[in-house]
């Protein structure tokens, strides 16, 4: 028979977040935002450093499927750009980068590769970085990217089913 131990654990964190003294939540958030603003330049630099190879990828592999290591590198760059994005208050750019990571992961499981599969997402990321897309349009374009992602995930599912019956 499986044994299960259940413990009631009290953490010091609980006392800290239920404090009667200390800083107000709104003040803590304002201070955090101000601190983040102080490193905005560094975050932008890191973001651009990671976006550059993505743009190069779109140029170098306009149609054909890249080798797996190249695809993995795209995922790593997108992921690092996503980290930098946390310091920049750019939620739409973050969502698109997250989608690019998911697309890369899905496509790495299948040989399916529609022409320029990742190029729309990479182009969208470039536009969001430069601030050339109004938010409302960006939302619509992200919805379209989401549809591409669903397709890619479908192909990945099918490929995985074949390898693991």
């Amino acid at each position: 028979m499986t044994s299960v131990i259940i413990r009631r654990v009290t953490t010091s964190l609980e006392k800290m977040v239920r404090a009667h003294e200390g800083v107000r939540v709104s003040d803590a958030l304002a201070a955090a935002e101000a601190n983040l603003a102080s490193i905005e330049g560094i975050c932008l630099e890191e973001l651009d450093l990671r976006l550059l190879p993505l743009a190069e990828f779109a140029r170098d592999y306009p149609v054909v499927r890249p080798p797996d290591p190249v695809l993995q590198q795209v995922g790593r760059n997108a992921s690092a750009a996503l980290t930098a994005c946390s310091g920049l208050n750019k939620p739409l750019l973050g969502r698109t980068l997250l989608m690019l990571c998911a697309m890369t992961d899905a496509l790495s499981h299948t040989r399916h590769w529609p022409d320029g599969a990742l190029n729309p997402a990479i182009a969208m990321i470039g536009l969001l970085r430069s601030g050339q897309v109004p938010d409302s349009l960006a939302e619509d374009l992200i919805t379209e990217l989401q549809r591409c992602l669903v397709q890619f995930v479908g192909h990945a599912d099918a490929a995985l089913k074949q390898t693991r019956p």
């Binding site: 006392k15 800290m16 977040v17 404090a19 009667h20 003294e21 200390g22 800083v23 107000r24 939540v25 709104s26 803590a28 958030l29």
Partner: peptide, 9 residues
Amino acid sequence: LDGNAKLDF
């Protein structure tokens, strides 16, 4: 978040 709640970290 309740902006008026207190935290003591």
